[in-house]
Nucleic acid binder design. Structure first.
Length: 387
DNA sequence: CGCTTTTGACCCGCGC
DNA sequence: GCGCGGGTCAAAAGCG
């Protein structure tokens, strides 16, 4: 009897213990969740700071490149005067081989049919530099920008009613680019990116739609053709091809054209770097190859790149399979304080290897806490030293 | 049902 | 002018 009571007492005791254990566990988990939340907030803050620094750096480097080329200095002055109260209110984005003025005129014509107010807005947009710099005032907020683009997209949708019309518009855009390049004697600038991964669908921040596949004579491995699907009329295309049978894990991705829509953060760095390269290429004799290399070193500090012209296509080749340090690194790049890594989709990123499946260009940016002013100052010094 | 991929046909530039 | 080859189109199939 006593024995039974004792057993039941211990059973009750065990039950209480189990409950209190559960409560303790719950508390501990809550504390952990809270801690993770706090860390998450801190990381968010850090990320936004990094993004801000990166944006202003990119903006300033682009501006310096523009001044270096000496192109459209009058227009720059005009913009500077407009924004002299706040230098940082100017967003400069680079565009490959396409005059913004031409696009804007076209947009203007389209929008003209919709409303005169929108024309005024599109005129505001038309502050462009000679070799494809696009300058936008940040006075209108990003939201306004988006609204404008939605309006334009709607206007275009009204004009473009069938698939055939889409094709016509595409051809017109293509024709514009071709006409422009006929004047310079060069075709559209191409940017080749060689990357090691088993999956050819590199995550470069854009959405692509495959429209063709072809087996070239020179290479028995098929080449895939993709079109940017982030905007209905985006003229950007890319080709993806394996780099040969011995090197089946490497892919050569060739980009051609300019996006006619805002790019996600992951894609913007790549676009800025490659556009800078293309702009420098297109500026031709005014730019020495060494200054071009110097510029590219800042965008792709740890990777091998080369510049060539094949079939009248100025081509920038970025080799992500060949680490570049230290021989091609800019002399003054802060090696000691910087690190470089590629972002991979797996939660615990392994070192880059041929077995990695996706490649994110957002990782191309340096993780070093670079001061934009100091980098800019060093960059200016370096450029002036080369002249 | 709508979007994407596949794939054969077609177009067009280039070299001979 | 012709043939070749790279690039694009578009109908059909696949997929979520």
């Amino acid at each position: 009897m006593i024995k039974e009571e004792t057993v039941s007492y211990f059973q009750t005791f065990d039950g209480v213990m189990a409950e209190s254990d559960k409560e303790e566990e719950l508390d501990a988990t809550k504390a952990k969740v809270e801690k993770v939340r706090e860390e998450n907030e801190k990381l968010k803050l850090l990320l936004s700071t990094i993004l801000n620094n990166y944006n202003s750096l990119q903006m300033q480097v682009s501006k310096v490149l523009g001044q270096q080329q000496g192109a459209s200095s009058m227009e720059l002055d005009h913009i500077d005067r407009q924004d002299e109260n706040n230098d940082y209110d100017v967003d400069i984005s680079l565009r490959l081989g396409r005059s913004e003025q031409k696009i804007s005129k076209k947009e203007e014509n389209k929008v003209d049919k919709i409303s005169t107010k929108d024309v005024e807005e599109s005129k505001d947009k038309r502050s462009a530099l000679g070799f494809g710099f696009q300058i936008q005032s940040y006075e209108a907020s990003k939201l306004d920008d988006l609204c404008r683009q939605v309006k334009l997209a709607n206007a275009e949708n009204k004009c473009v009613s069938s698939r055939k019309d889409v094709k016509t518009v595409r051809n017109e855009n293509h024709q514009d680019v071709l006409e422009e390049h006929e004047q310079t004697g060069l075709k559209k600038t191409r940017v080749c990116v060689k990357a090691s991964c088993e999956d050819p669908s590199i995550n470069d921040g854009c959405q692509w739609r495959k429209y063709g596949q072809k087996t070239a004579k020179t290479n028995p491995l098929p080449r895939a053709y993709y079109r940017c699907s982030m905007s209905s009329n985006c003229p950007v295309r890319k080709q993806v091809q394996r780099c040969g049978e011995e090197e089946t894990s490497a892919f050569m991705t060739t980009y051609e054209g300019n996006h006619d829509h805002p790019l996600p953060m992951e894609a913007s760095h790549m676009a800025a770097g490659t556009s800078a390269a293309a702009s420098l290429l297109q500026s031709g004799s005014s730019s020495s190859s060494s200054s071009t290399s110097a510029s590219l070193s800042y965008f792709f500090p740890f990777h091998h790149f080369s510049i060539s012209t094949t079939n009248s296509h100025p081509t920038v080749t970025l080799d992500l399979t060949r680490p570049n340090y230290p021989n091609q690194l800019p002399d003054d790049y802060p090696l000691s304080s910087s690190s470089f890594s590629l972002n991979f989709s797996s939660p615990d990123p392994p070192p880059p290897s041929s077995h990695d499946h996706t490649l994110n260009f957002s990782g191309l940016r340096t993780q070093a806490p670079l001061s934009t002013d100091s980098l800019l100052a060093r960059y200016r010094t370096r450029l002036s030293g080369q002249q």
